[in-house]
Design a protein around this nucleic acid. Structure first.
Length: 373
DNA sequence: TAACCGTGGGA
DNA sequence: TTCCCAAGGTT
């Protein structure tokens, strides 16, 4: 164990300074109006790798539609994904739904109330378990997220690479020793609020920081160099095609992605990644044949969408297409259907396909007879 | 362990 | 434009 030279088992000005600042400056966030473990749980899942301002409208809509864990467990997964549409990391929605059913079926509807029991729920890791335990149940549990990592590496001027397990273990151990008995909730939440508003990654506002007197990095002038992390590799780029296959009645064909993997369970215009040397129409015809077992004619290009995912970038080329032969049947997709432009709103789409839909609605990509003349 | 998993905002 | 980053978890 690394000796930080501090004894945090006794009351310490660090705790009082942070909690006093938090009580004076904390924002009025929707999930701070309750201790309902279901509500805290929902907020923590949504807040994983997602900023507060992004989460708020999703949180409000979700809670209105699913006010209790019972309501969530009894809903179809497709309804949950629709409410998650655009929020990203969709495995969170699938795990949330599965966990709700576990609470109902395996735990008699009683939400788990210990760190270990919470961590048994799918989608709940060490951080989220600590957050629910301390914020909903008032337990003396630590948590370690990006904010707390930043604050602790600065407070104690920790130079280890935070991507390494050894450094993470040190930080978890430190976070555990720092939790003030009986005040874990405001302490943990105060750390995250401080990290978000004052101890920011690029431009920490040390002049307004209630902890600057305790901060070793501030004393040494190294706050901009903490935390230490190794740079990540550049992301590759791919060309991707999408087919807007229109029937005579104006409906278009959409396919549901497999429930595991990227964007699992969401709907999209069928298509896929272009192989080296392959033309865009060839790519489209191949992908549609492999996905749905049909042959299409590729018409006019409707537009392009550029998008950056976590680990790669794409340029998506959307084409107007017609069915030539065959009957669609699910091969590499989970499901498929024909839908009119109005009906598309019932399905959950990734943002890229939402942009294609927007093109169609704006008339930028006019479908119909003039495609072929 | 390291790769994978989305999206939007800010510098 | 490009890069980083955000109340992480899973495999």
């Amino acid at each position: 164990m690394k000796n930080t030279g501090h004894d945090f088992t006794a009351p310490h000005a660090l705790h009082d300074d942070l909690i006093a600042w938090f009580e004076a400056h904390k924002a009025d966030l929707p999930w701070r109006r309750t201790h309902d473990p279901y509500v805290i749980w929902l907020s923590e899942i949504m807040l994983q790798q997602t900023q507060v301002t992004t989460v708020i409208p999703y949180f409000e809509r979700f809670l209105e539609r699913f006010p209790t864990v019972h309501a969530l467990a009894n809903a179809p997964l497709d309804d949950v994904l629709k409410l998650w549409e655009g929020l990203g990391y969709y495995s969170r929605a699938r795990n949330l739904h599965r966990a709700a059913r576990m609470v109902l079926n395996d735990l008699n509807g009683v939400f788990p109330s210990t760190v270990n029991a919470l961590q048994q729920l799918p989608g709940v890791g060490r951080y989220t378990a600590g957050a629910i335990a301390s914020l909903a149940f008032g337990l003396d549990a630590p948590l370690l997220d990006g904010n707390v990592i930043r604050i602790l590496t600065r407070l104690f001027d920790i130079t280890g690479d935070v991507g390494l397990t050894a450094t993470k273990n040190t930080l978890w151990e430190l976070a555990g020793r720092l939790v003030p008995s009986g005040r874990a909730g405001p302490w943990n939440e105060g750390l995250m609020e401080l990290g978000r508003r004052i101890c920011s990654p690029k431009s920490p506002d040390c002049d307004r920081c209630p902890l600057s007197a305790h901060c070793e990095a501030y004393r040494m002038g190294t706050q901009h160099e903490r935390p230490v992390k190794r740079p990540k590799a550049r992301t590759p780029h791919y060309d991707v095609t999408a087919a807007v296959i229109e029937r005579d009645d104006g409906s278009v064909l959409i396919a549901q992605r497999p429930h595991d993997g990227m964007l699992g369970g969401l709907w999209e215009f069928p298509g896929g990644k272009r192989e080296p040397g392959e033309s865009l129409p060839d790519c489209l015809r191949r992908e549609i044949r492999e996905e749905l077992g049909i042959t299409i004619q590729v018409g006019r290009q409707l537009g392009t969408v550029r998008h950056a995912y976590s680990h790669f970038r794409i340029t998506l080329y959307a084409f107007a297409c017609r069915l030539v032969s065959g009957t669609p049947h699910a091969i590499e997709c989970a499901d498929w259907t024909w839908a009119t432009l109005d009906e598309l709103g019932q399905y959950a789409f990734p943002v890229t396909d939402q942009k294609i839909i927007r093109m169609l609605r704006n008339g930028e990509g006019q479908l119909g007879m003039d495609l072929w003349t």
